[in-house]
Every structure is written in structure tokens, then in C-alpha cells.
Computed example of a mutant assay.
Amino acid sequence: MTRFDYLGGAGLYAGKSKAGISGPRYRRFETAAEALRFAVEDMPNSQQRGSMLEIDEARFDQNQIRALYDAPGYPLSRRLA
């Protein structure tokens, strides 16, 4: 994966929940790292599917979100499973 700026601001669009329960569909984060953490650790699995991270003009789907979170360069501590 190419170099990624985890410190820039990011927007996160949550996927639709199958259960019909949904929170905010869009949320803005101070850093991409915080958005990635929220998407992987706090967002329900049903909303992870179809979610999208947007940074400037670049968009990342749920698979790319997970890959960026799992990458060695991810700057925040990860929640232990």
C-alpha cells in the first residue's frame, strides 16, 4: 500500500443497517486515524458493510478501511480483541 496520511481530516459514511436501526450516516473526524478506529472498533458490523471513508477527493471502501486500520503505519493503539 502506498503512503497514507493518517493525520489529515476525514469523513466517514456509514453503511445502511439491515436491522433498520441507524445512527448518523455521516460523521467528520479530526484525523483519518480516528475515523478508521471508529469504523473498525465502534461501528456495528451491519453498518461497516457499505461504509466509505472520504479524504479530500479520495474514497475508500470497507475493505480498504480495514486494510488501512491493520497496516503497520496505523498510528493509534488498537483495541485488543
Rank of each mutant, 00 (worst) to 15 (best):
I65G: 01
S22F: 08
A14Q: 06
E57S: 11
G11T: 08
L53T: 02
A19G: 10
R49D: 08
A19S: 13
F60Y: 12
A81R: 14
S51R: 04
E57T: 09
E34L: 10
R3P: 05
G23Q: 11
F60P: 03
L80M: 06
D5I: 08
G15R: 03
Q48P: 00
E34W: 05
G50E: 03
A67I: 13
M52H: 12
A19V: 08
N45F: 12
R78H: 06
D56M: 09
A32E: 02
L68A: 07
D70V: 11
G11H: 04
M52N: 05
R78E: 11
G20E: 02
N63Q: 14
K16E: 15
S77L: 12
I65Q: 06
F38H: 12
I55V: 11
Q62I: 13
L7Y: 14
R66Y: 12
D61F: 08
K18Q: 10
L76K: 13
R37G: 00
E34G: 06
T31H: 09
I65P: 03
R25N: 10
V40R: 01
S17H: 05
E34A: 05
M52S: 13
Y74A: 04
N63G: 12
N45I: 11
R78T: 08
R37I: 01
M43Y: 04
R49L: 12
R49P: 00
Y26P: 07
R79P: 02
G9F: 04
D5G: 04
Y13H: 13
G20D: 00
D61V: 09
S51E: 05
A71D: 15
E34Y: 04
K18V: 15
